[in-house]
Deep mutational scan, measured.
Amino acid sequence: MEVRTIKVFTTVDNINLHTQVVDMSMTYGQQFGPTYLDGADVTKIKPHNSHEGKTFYVLPNDDTLRVEAFEYYHTTDPSFLGRYMSALNHTKKWKYPQVNGLTSIKWADNNCYLATALLTLQQIELKFNPPALQDAYYRARAGEAANFCALILAYCNKTVGELGDVRETMSYLFQHANLDSCKRVLNVVCKTCGQQQTTLKGVEAVMYMGTLSYEQFKKGVQIPCTCGKQATKYLVQQESPFVMMSAPPAQYELKHGTFTCASEYTGNYQCGHYKHITSKETLYCIDGALLTKSSEYKGPITDVFYKENSYTTTIK
């Protein structure tokens, strides 16, 4: 009895394709271990004539594949690729409408935090270190965002349907971005203890939790000093293409032309909904596939993004 075979390709990165001759009487799992086709788990399936010449994702289970996976995804987590594939199996079914010149995501599976993050990423200057993220990001900007969303979920250790947080998501993504040249110098002034300067680099240099107003941050924000008295913390120097200011959701007025974009969060910790506000020729609110415009805006804002380049204080 002759062994019926077909020729397929296996890959971990969709760049390096490895030619395989597979036995049609055995499952993919018996031949390769966990195997995925377009995100779908085909591990328990036997090869079919229609699979001839198709590319299958496999887990990096030998040295060659491990090197290829690390170079593309910059992670050695053995569960990463499987999590990416199972997320992709959902995100490829989502709709990605162009809204006001940006790629958004039609609401499904509690994905409003991903839509808000995706919209924000198209408006701030950011370059990702893992080629996987950078490639998928370019495709997302062009309207094909399924891979990018699935990668975000995998890097953030999230599953489809789980509630997510924009600030946490951005923080994970910033860790995989090139923020080497970003720098922030802060000064804390206390009447009792004097003053202390701190220099922050990388992710810490672009994120701040405690106030939404970048102007206020430049002037000074009140913080408790270690001595128990009130101290003032203010920005001395900022070198970065953008800054992200966050605070627990509270009524906040966004003035046209003073910011790049913002995240609105309605609801409580267990259950809520994100919308995205962007400042173009007027203010726009993007909620999944829905767009509304207004000249002014007041609502429960939790993150505001500002364009920056270089700032030095005039406070002496």
Rank of each mutant, 00 (worst) to 15 (best):
E2V: 13
T5H: 10
I6F: 14
K7W: 10
I15D: 08
N16K: 02
N16I: 04
N16S: 08
H18S: 06
Q20H: 14
V21F: 14
V22H: 06
V22Y: 03
V22G: 08
M26Q: 14
F32W: 00
F32V: 13
G33D: 02
G33W: 00
G33E: 04
G33S: 05
P34Y: 08
T35I: 15
T35Q: 04
Y36F: 11
Y36H: 05
Y36S: 03
G39P: 02
D41W: 05
V42G: 04
V42Y: 12
T43W: 04
K44C: 15
K44Q: 11
I45V: 12
S50Y: 13
S50R: 11
H51I: 00
E52N: 11
G53E: 12
K54M: 12
K54V: 13
F56W: 07
F56A: 05
Y57H: 11
Y57E: 00
V58E: 00
P60F: 06
D62S: 14
D62P: 02
L65R: 11
R66Y: 08
V67C: 15
F70P: 02
Y73N: 04
T76I: 14
P78N: 11
P78D: 14
F80E: 03
F80S: 02
L81Q: 09
Y84M: 03
Y84S: 05
M85P: 13
A87C: 14
L88M: 09
H90I: 08
K92N: 08
K92M: 08
K93P: 06
K93H: 13
K93D: 12
K93S: 11
W94E: 06
Y96G: 04
Q98M: 15
Q98R: 14
V99P: 12
N100H: 10
L102K: 05
T103E: 06
T103R: 06
T103H: 06
I105H: 06
A108G: 07
A108E: 11
D109C: 03
C112Q: 05
L114C: 08
L114M: 06
L114R: 06
L114T: 02
A115R: 04
L119H: 00
L119Y: 06
T120W: 01
L121V: 13
L121H: 02
I124C: 06
L126P: 04
L126K: 07
K127M: 10
K127S: 13
N129C: 08
N129E: 08
P130E: 10
P131T: 01
P131E: 05
P131M: 05
A132M: 07
L133F: 00
L133H: 02
A136S: 10
Y138T: 14
A140Q: 02
R141N: 07
G143R: 02
F148E: 02
C149G: 02
A150W: 03
I152M: 14
N157H: 12
K158S: 06
T159C: 14
V160S: 02
G161V: 05
G161Q: 03
E162Y: 08
L163W: 07
G164P: 04
D165R: 00
R167E: 01
T169D: 08
S171R: 15
S171P: 02
F174P: 06
F174G: 02
F174H: 00
Q175A: 12
Q175D: 07
H176T: 01
H176V: 05
A177I: 06
A177K: 02
L179V: 03
D180F: 07
D180Q: 12
S181P: 04
V185A: 02
V185Y: 00
L186M: 14
C190A: 05
T192Q: 11
Q197I: 10
T198H: 11
L200S: 09
K201C: 09
V206P: 00
V206K: 03
V206Q: 00
M207T: 12
Y208C: 09
Y208F: 15
G210T: 01
L212M: 02
S213K: 04
Y214W: 10
Q216M: 09
Q216W: 02
Q216T: 07
K218D: 01
K218T: 05
K219L: 10
G220Q: 01
G220A: 05
G220Y: 04
I223Q: 07
P224Y: 10
C225R: 01
C227E: 00
C227G: 01
C227W: 00
G228S: 02
G228Y: 01
K229T: 11
Q230D: 11
A231M: 04
A231R: 03
K233S: 11
Y234N: 03
Y234P: 02
V236H: 02
Q237E: 11
Q237F: 14
Q238M: 02
Q238K: 02
Q238P: 00
S240D: 03
P241R: 06
F242P: 02
M244D: 00
M245F: 15
M245S: 01
S246V: 01
A247L: 00
A247G: 08
P249I: 04
Q251L: 15
Y252S: 05
Y252V: 13
Y252N: 00
E253G: 08
E253R: 08
H256S: 10
F259G: 01
F259H: 03
T260H: 05
C261R: 04
Y265C: 00
Y265W: 04
T266F: 08
N268L: 02
Q270V: 15
C271F: 15
G272W: 00
Y274V: 02
I277W: 13
I277N: 08
I277D: 06
T278W: 05
T278F: 09
T282D: 11
T282A: 13
Y284S: 10
Y284V: 13
D287F: 05
D287H: 00
D287T: 06
T292P: 03
K293G: 09
S295G: 10
Y297E: 00
K298A: 13
K298F: 14
D303G: 00
D303R: 05
V304L: 03
F305T: 04
F305W: 05
Y306I: 00
N309Q: 08
S310P: 08
T312E: 07
T312G: 10
T312N: 08
T313Q: 15
T313M: 15
